[in-house]
Amino acid sequence: MAVEGHTLEFCLAEEADFEEVMSISGDVYGGIDYLPARYHAWIQDSVRRVILAKKKGQIVALVSVNIVDDGHTAVVEGLRVAPLERGKGIAGLIQGYSLNLVKDQFPEVKVRRYVRSGQLAPEILTKFRLICKQEILSVQFKAEDIRPKLEAAFTWLKESGKQWEDPVLLGASEAKRLFLSQRVVDEVLPGKAIIQDWVPYKPLESNLEKLVSQDFIWMADDKEEPTVLSLGTAPYRVPLGTGYHRLNIDIFGKQFPRARNQFLAQLQQRVSTLEGPIYCLLYFEPSIWQDMLSFCQTTLELHKDRDFGGQNLLEADM
């Protein structure tokens, strides 16, 4: 395959490629890239294909395609192109190769899904269906600094009558039952999808089995008729700086007080076992953006670190 006079070679990624892959993606996401923490697990996953593009033997691009939804959906993740090779069409070529490979190896796949940040160009919406959008609030803090602020926030909310109700921790069976509930799917989940740290899943038994087996924190405002649910991903190391952890909290539902309560409870659960700097990404319903931002700024003294422009779930037929 010719690209600017050179030939691209495609192959599956291997353990030994890790350092070279990291060398082409060091500037991605400003130091909070998830790929270093996931690479090794990705290449061992039997229903995922991690593809490399090489030029003259050197890695110039990577993309991952994860097969979910009982084998019917291909989720495209982790696109990386070496800095000096960007803007040359390599991204489109490696994605095209990977999707063709997936169609050959997983013939039941019907659609592909992407989760992208930022403003969508008009031409994107001619190729993809926009399923839903979540807002993203990014904040930085040290675990030891945020713990007393969380305690003070809990005390203030409980004493002031600011619609405080203790969030409910969910076990695996409870999480599965609620996230598979038709009412929750129709009324609570954005676009009828469970978006876990940028990965979209349809609410299916097989997906929930996979999710509840991982080190996540599941919460609800009610065990029987929830209006807000949340999912906290286990923190992982990122390249931003020495000892930095990234923490992701996905909140589903439109009622701000209950979303706020679960944000605080999720945060408390995680920072109780961490030390040092944390980069937290909070994903939630766009209609409660201003309330959540104001609460973080005034009560927790946390300020938006960067503007991601929202989280968009896109879908197209294969």
Rank of each mutant, 00 (worst) to 15 (best):
R237S: 15
P239G: 02
G241T: 03
Q255S: 09
W198L: 13
Q255I: 08
W198H: 09
L208M: 15
G243D: 02
Q255H: 14
R237M: 06
L247N: 07
D221K: 08
S213G: 11
T227A: 11
W218R: 04
S213M: 13
I195F: 09
Q262P: 08
M219L: 15
W198P: 01
P190A: 08
D221A: 11
P203A: 05
S206I: 11
V212F: 01
A193R: 13
D250I: 07
Y236C: 07
R258F: 10
K254G: 12
F256V: 04
D197E: 14
P239V: 00
V238S: 00
Y236P: 00
P257W: 00
K254Y: 03
V199M: 09
K223Q: 15
R270K: 09
I251H: 07
P239Q: 01
I249A: 03
P257V: 05
R260V: 03
N207E: 04
W198Q: 11
S272W: 12
Q196Y: 02
Q214S: 14
L240T: 00
G253M: 10
L267Y: 13
L247H: 05
P235G: 07
R258E: 01
W218T: 02
P190F: 08
Q268E: 15
K210A: 10
M219N: 05
D197Q: 14
S272P: 04
V199P: 01
D222R: 05
K254N: 07
